[in-house]
Amino acid sequence: METTHRSVVDAQDTFTMAREQALIEAAQAGDKQAYRQLYDRYVGRVHALSYRLTADQGLAEDATQEVFIQLWRKLDNYNAKSKFSTWLHSVTANITVSYMRKQRGWVHRMFNIEGSAAEHHTAEGSAGDVDLEAYIVRLPERARMVFVLHAIEGYRHEEIANMLNMAVGSSKAQFHRAKHLLKEWMGYTDE
């Protein structure tokens, strides 16, 4: 029974992957309808990552558009050796970071803003009642980006340092800072 269920699941996975590969190849050949289907399939994931990185609904939506506009040009670079979703997450992270730099750079330099002032908010949660998504977007910008890339997306600190143009030690320090704040906000003050 268990074996039969697994076979059905495997067959479904294979079919889904084959369908996806067909869409990718059609889009690579210039088929916009196929690209639209890929967009429908992945816009939620791309937007989720962009939102966690930017912590701003409007900026995340703009970045998501930018990802899919640039992705159309970059599709030829995808060679099916890795999973499409993995490659797409990597493209999304890079384009969103670059987009944030372009959009916010001058504002930050001019007003010396380091992300949100959320760090100074008092903890509202308790150890049993946690909305991690809400806490993540309250983190200061650099700590949030490092946390999202390392803890959620699985990047190594060396890769993050390269992506965010910071020292490896800074990436580790920002991750520690993020965890410290989350711990406090989640009500774990005594451990």
Binding site: V43, H47, A48, E61, T64, E133
Partner: peptide, 13 residues
Amino acid sequence: DLAKEKAPQRDLW
């Protein structure tokens, strides 16, 4: 447990 997807609030297409 984090949600894998988050739909945008406006049509981006």
